[in-house]
Amino acid sequence: MRFHAPAIIAASLILGACAQTTIRDSESVATAQPPTVPVQSAPQPIEPEAVQPAVEPVYNDMIVLLPKPNGQIGGVVVRSSDGGGDGLVLDKPYAGARIEGPGKVRAVTYDAELTRQEFGTAISALPSRPATFVLYFLEGKDELTGESEGEVARVFDELKSRPDPEIWVIGHTDAVGSMQYNDQLSLQRAERVRDELVSRGIPADSIEVSGRGKREPLIPTSEGTPEPQNRRVQIDVR
C-alpha cells in the first residue's frame, strides 16, 4: 500500500488538531480540580474569651399551598430536615408552614395577595399545563366528523400558543374489522391529524405519531360493534 503525499500531510494536520484539542480538554479538567487544602499549622491554644458558643443558624423556609383549579388538594407533608416527628400536613388553599430549624415547623396562613407578592414571579413562570384533546372520525374513514372538523382550529390555537410543544398524536378505531385493518386505519387517522397540524404551522419534528388500532377503546364493546366514541385521535401536549 502506497499513500499519496497530500493525503499524508492532510492526515497528520488533522491528527495534530485532534491531539491539541485533547490536550486542551485535559488541561481544563485539571484546572477544574479543587485547589489543594493548605496544610494546617499546629492548633494554637485558644484564649478563653475567644471561645464562641455554638450558634444554630435561624432558617426561614416557607411553603404555601395554592388553590387548585379543580379544587382537589392531596396536600403536602412538611417535616424539618432532621426528619423527626409526624410532620405537618397542609391540605387547604393558602395553608402554609414556616420551618426555622430542627423540630421548628409552624403552621401559618397566607392569602391570595400575600402569596402573589412573595411568589408572583415564580408562579407566572409555570409552564402551560399538559393537556389532552380528542377528535372523532367517520366510520371506516380517516375523515373527521363535522363537529370535530370545527374543533381543529381551537386545538391548533392551543398547541400553537405553547413554546417548544411536545405533541403525541395517537390514533384509535372501533372494533369493526381485522386487527391489521384497524392498525392501518388508526395510523392513517393519526397521520391525517398530524398533516393538518403541520399545514397550519406546527413544526413536524415536535409531533410523534402512533396508531393503537382497536386495542384501547374508550367504550369497551364486543367484537365487530361500531362505536363512534372509539373512532378517535387523541392529542397529548406538554
Binding site: 423556609d61 395554592l66 430536615s81 426528619g83 391540605d91 408552614a97 412573595e118
Partner: peptide
C-alpha cells in the same frame, strides 16, 4: 430546603428559602 423536607401527595404549592 435547608431546613425542611416536603412529601408531595398531589397539589400545587410554592416554596421560599431565605
Amino acid at each position: 430546603t435547608p431546613a425542611a423536607i416536603m412529601g408531595v401527595r398531589g397539589t400545587e404549592f410554592v416554596v421560599k428559602v431565605d
